[in-house]
């Protein structure tokens, strides 16, 4: 029963709170010789800079919940590739979803994901993050490996960040802790829900809406 430690929370947290300051993305540089399996310095630098920013902000305390939430949304747009993640988590159903449903899903998924991460913002206890390496699937698709330590962690925890380069900058698309990728897990959750509704995406959308309404009321 050792899978899924509290570290899952911390990874999401680091991603979530990472850039309450809006920043220009690190310029994307793909060396000509970069290939699958090689390290990618640009991607490592991007994760290192964003993580440092995240930890700086996490260690400060703000009173104003509403402005924190606004800054948080701005950050997500800056550092994470929200459209790509939104498309990915629908799995095979991203092919068949209608454009109006797609817009509806994108809107509710954003609220849902923000609520999940926001609820964890206060779980930071001074952990620090160090980039330890990277493995490239391609010059524009890189897994950056980091080690999170300190705070309330007994032992350092390995956290990997999947970053994709497009249009001149890197963006985070997934985070892995204890071998578990958050976006992949999210996809399997959503696809299973739609499968069990006989392929009706609206059932998932409605369920997420209820969830968001409940969280906002709480």
């Amino acid at each position: 029963m050792r899978f899924l430690s509290q570290s899952l929370v911390i990874a999401a947290l680091a991603l979530a709170a990472g850039g309450v300051l809006a920043v220009a993305p690190t310029p994307f540089t793909a060396p000509a010789m970069a290939q699958s399996g090689a390290r990618n310095a640009g991607a490592e630098q991007f994760v290192g800079i964003q993580a440092q920013r995240a930890l700086t902000i996490l260690s400060q305390h703000r009173g104003d919940v509403a402005s924190e939430k606004r800054l948080f949304h701005a950050f997500i747009d800056q550092v994470a590739d929200v459209p790509r993640i939104t498309y990915f988590v629908l799995g095979k159903y991203s092919r068949s979803i209608s454009p109006p449903q797609q817009r509806e899903f994108a809107s509710v998924f954003r609220e849902y994901a923000s609520n999940v991460y926001e609820s964890r913002l206060n779980e930071y206890h001074g952990e620090t993050l160090k980039v330890t390496g990277s493995v490239a699937r391609s010059p524009t698709d890189v897994i950056v490996q980091t080690l999170v330590s300190g705070g309330k962690l007994d032992q350092p925890v390995a956290v990997s960040w999947r970053v994709i380069a497009e249009g001149g900058g890197w963006r985070v698309v997934d985070v892995q802790v204890d071998g578990v990728w958050l976006a992949i897990t999210q996809q399997q959750d959503f696809v299973s829900t739609i499968d069990n509704a006989g392929g009706n995406v609206q059932v998932l959308i409605d369920q997420l809406k209820r969830q968001v309404a409940k969280d906002d009321a709480a």
Binding site: F3, D178, G179, V180, D189, V191, S192, L204
Partner: peptide, 19 residues
């Protein structure tokens, strides 16, 4: 948070063990 907790736990378990 999960829309299907069963599928989420299954996914997390299998990924963790595989890793």
């Amino acid at each position: 948070t999960a829309t299907d907790p069963y599928a989420t736990e299954r996914s997390a378990y299998l990924q963790n063990r595989r890793s």
